[in-house]
Amino acid sequence: MDLSLGFIPHVFMSINMEKLGRIAIIGGGSWATAIAKIVLSKKDKINWYMHREDRIIAFKEKGHNPAYLTNVNFDINKINFSNDINKTINTADTLIFVTPSPYLKDELKDLTVSLENKLIVTAIKGIIPGKNLIVSDFFSQVYHVSQPNIAVIGGPCHAEEVAKHKLSYLTVSCTDLEKAKSFSNLLTNDYVRVTTSKDVAGVEYGSVLKNVYAIAAGIYYGLGYGDNFHAVLLSNSILEMDKFLNKVYPLNRNVCESVYLGDLLVTGYSKYSRNRRFGHSIGQGHSVEGAQAEMGMVAEGYYGTKCIYEINLKQQVDMPILQAVYKVLYQNADPRSEMKLLTNRLK
Rank of each mutant, 00 (worst) to 15 (best):
I120K: 02
T122R: 04
T122K: 03
T122A: 07
I124W: 04
I124A: 04
I127G: 07
I128T: 14
I128M: 06
I128H: 04
P129R: 08
P129C: 09
G130M: 03
G130N: 06
K131E: 15
K131P: 03
N132M: 04
N132R: 12
L133G: 10
L133S: 05
I134E: 03
I134K: 00
S136D: 05
D137V: 07
D137E: 13
D137T: 13
D137N: 15
F138Y: 13
F138L: 11
S140E: 12
S140R: 14
S140P: 07
Q141V: 08
Q141T: 15
V142L: 05
V142P: 13
Y143E: 12
H144T: 14
V145E: 06
V145H: 01
Q147E: 05
Q147R: 15
P148Q: 00
N149K: 15
I150A: 06
I150V: 14
A151F: 06
A151G: 14
A151K: 13
A151I: 11
V152W: 01
I153W: 05
G154Q: 03
G154H: 03
G155E: 01
P156D: 15
P156I: 12
H158G: 12
A159V: 10
A159P: 12
A159N: 10
E161Y: 09
E161L: 12
V162L: 06
V162C: 07
A163W: 03
A163L: 06
A163C: 01
K164Q: 14
H165T: 08
K166R: 14
K166D: 09
K166W: 01
L167C: 09
S168L: 06
Y169R: 14
Y169D: 15
Y169P: 12
T171R: 10
T171S: 03
V172H: 06
V172K: 00
C174Y: 10
C174E: 07
C174V: 13
C174S: 15
T175M: 08
T175C: 02
L177A: 09
E178C: 06
K179D: 02
K179A: 06
A180Y: 00
K181F: 04
K181V: 09
S182I: 14
S182Q: 11
F183Y: 08
S184C: 10
S184G: 13
N185F: 00
N185S: 13
N185T: 09
L186F: 09
L187V: 05
T188A: 13
T188H: 07
N189I: 04
N189M: 07
D190P: 02
Y191R: 05
V192Y: 00
V192I: 15
V192M: 03
V192S: 04
R193W: 04
R193N: 12
R193D: 06
T195D: 12
S197A: 09
D199Q: 00
V200G: 01
V200R: 00
A201V: 15
G202N: 04
V203R: 02
V203Q: 03
E204R: 08
E204G: 05
E204V: 14
G206T: 11
G206F: 10
G206C: 10
V208K: 01
